[in-house]
């Protein structure tokens, strides 16, 4: 029953994903992709659980390695997306000090 319930969640979230993304303008495709990529780092939750569960030594090591990679994905993904989005400005906001040219 558990599996069926999870499959139900899966089905609904896929449809939700389609609905959410299909309206994004082409201008923002790159930040959208890196932002979505950062979300896929959610696997860090799984990594934390397996690294911390105190199972066999090997499982802990695998989990710790997973935590490292997933953190790269999460931290890097959100920061780079934030950096990119900060560059999208309208005409009025320009010419401020600190704006690179």
């Amino acid at each position: 029953m558990e599996a069926v319930f999870l499959a139900f969640v899966l089905m609904l979230s896929i449809f939700l994903g389609f609905e959410l993304i299909s309206k994004v303008p082409a201008t923002l495709h790159t930040p959208l992709m890196s932002g979505a990529n950062a979300i896929s780092g959610i696997t860090i939750v799984g990594a934390l659980i397996s690294a911390g569960a105190g199972h066999a030594q090997v499982a802990t090591w695998l989990g710790a390695l997973a935590v490292t990679f997933a953190t790269v994905n999460v931290v890097g993904g959100y920061l780079v997306t934030n950096r990119m989005l900060g560059m999208f400005r309208k005409k009025d906001d320009k010419g401020q000090p600190g704006a690179t040219s």
Partner: peptide, 13 residues
């Protein structure tokens, strides 16, 4: 759950 929801959102995107 959260892995399934977030993962499938990204998959769909």
């Amino acid at each position: 759950n959260i892995l399934i929801v977030a993962g499938s959102l990204v998959g769909a995107a």
